[in-house]
Nucleic acid binder design. Structure first.
Lengths: 183, 183
DNA sequence: CTCATATGTTAAGCTACCTCAACAGTCTTG
DNA sequence: CAAGACTGTTGAGGTAGCTTAACATATGAG
C-alpha cells in the first residue's frame, strides 16, 4: 500500500481525536459528557455528535446509551490522552524551541497531533527537554542558536547540503502563485 | 471558528497535495503527466484521477482538457514545491536530529507535510541546519545530546516541568487500552 | 482507412462527516 | 402528574474521495 494512502487508515481521524479529547475534557471538568456539551464545545450540531458517537462506539472507543452520558472506554481514553500529550509536546517544541508565534503553533499542533507517531513525540519531548535544560552544552547551544543565520545566503559554505539544487527555504517562503522571493 | 475545524478548510487536502506532487514529479521525469500515469503512481483508479482533476481545476491548481495531458498552474506548482520542501525538511529533521527510524520518519513526514505552516518548516530547517553545522556549540550539543536521558526518571529535577502532573512520556508510550507502562 | 487496443470519462454507489428540520424522550415546575 | 421546555435522535441531503462497470475517444498496425 502506498504510504500516502495510510492517511485514511489512521486508527483515529482528526475529527475522532477531537471528539475523544472533548469527552475526556468535559468528564474532567464537569464530571460527565453529554451530547449537547460536546456539540457546544466542538461547535457542531447535536445530530453530528450523535452520529459520530455511533462511529466511535462501533470502534469501541466510547460507550453511549440513548439519551445517556458518554463514557470513554480504556482504549478511547488512551487515544485521548496520547493525542493530548502529543499536542502539548508539539506546542512546547514549536513555541519554545522553534520560536514560532503562539497562534501558529497552536493551530499546527492541533492539525498534526493525531498524525505523528509516538516515537516522534517521545523524541521531540526528549529534544525539547534537553535544549531547555541546565546542561552547559544546552545553554551554550541556546545562545549560539539565537543568532544563527536565518537565510541560506548566510550559511557557512556546505551547510546547505540539505537544500540540494534549490534552496528549500526559498521554496518554503514562496507565496503561492508567484515567483520565488529573492532574499 | 474553532481551530480544529480549519482542518477541512486547508487550502489543499492531503489527497490534493499528493496529486499535485505527483503531477510535478511525472512532468519532471517524463515530460508530461497523463491520467493513467497519475493513477498508477498513486495507486488509485483512473476515474478517481479524472474526478480529482476536476476539483483541482475548479480550484485553479491544474489545467486539463479531456483526453489531454495535465499541467500545473503557477499556483498548483507553488503548492507542489512547497509541500515537497516541507516533506524534505521534516524527513531530515526526524531522521537526523530526532534519530527516528527511516520508515517512521517517511510516513510521518508524508502525513503532515501539507499541514505544517511555512513558518514552522522554515524554523525547522534553520534548527536542523544549525544542529548539523560545524559551529562549536552545535558540535558540543550533538555530543551531549547523544547521551541525554531518555526517561523522565533520569531528568534532572525540575526539568520535567513540561510534563505537569503526569509524565508526558508515559502517556505517549502507553499502548492503547492498557495501563501506563512503568519505566 | 479501419479496427483492435490503449487510454480516458461517465455513472452509480460507498464511507466519512457534516448540516437542518422534524420528531421523540426526559425533566422540571406549577 | 401533566404542560411546556430542554435535550437527543432520526432522516434527508451535501461534499470529498474513493471504487467498479460500462461506455467513449484516440492511436497505431496492417
Amino acid at each position: 500500500m502506498e504510504i500516502w494512502k495510510r492517511y485514511s487508515e489512521k486508527e483515529v481521524s482528526h475529527s475522532m481525536a477531537h471528539y475523544l479529547q472533548t469527552v475526556a475534557q468535559l468528564k474532567a471538568e464537569k464530571g460527565h459528557a453529554r451530547v449537547g456539551d460536546i456539540a457546544e464545545y466542538l461547535g457542531v450540531s447535536k445530530s453530528g455528535v450523535t452520529s459520530m458517537l455511533r462511529s466511535l462506539e462501533k470502534r469501541g472507543l466510547v460507550r453511549h446509551e440513548r439519551y445517556g452520558c458518554v463514557e470513554l472506554t480504556d482504549e478511547g481514553s488512551g487515544f485521548a490522552s496520547r493525542t493530548e500529550s502529543s499536542r502539548r509536546v508539539l506546542s512546547m517544541f514549536l513555541t519554545e524551541i522553534l520560536g514560532v508565534a503562539e497562534d501558529v503553533a497552536t493551530e499546527d499542533a492541533c492539525m498534526i497531533e493525531h498524525l505523528v507517531s509516538p516515537e516522534v513525540s517521545i523524541e521531540l519531548l526528549r529534544l525539547t527537554t534537553f535544549i531547555r535544560s541546565k546542561h552547559p552544552a544546552a545553554a551554550l547551544f541556546r545562545d549560539a542558536y539565537r543568532t544563527s543565520p536565518r537565510s541560506c545566503k548566510e550559511h557557512e559554505p556546505g551547510a546547505c547540503d540539505l537544500c540540494g539544487a534549490t534552496c528549500l527555504r526559498e521554496s518554503l517562503i514562496t507565496p503561492i502563485g508567484r515567483a520565488p522571493v529573492r532574499i
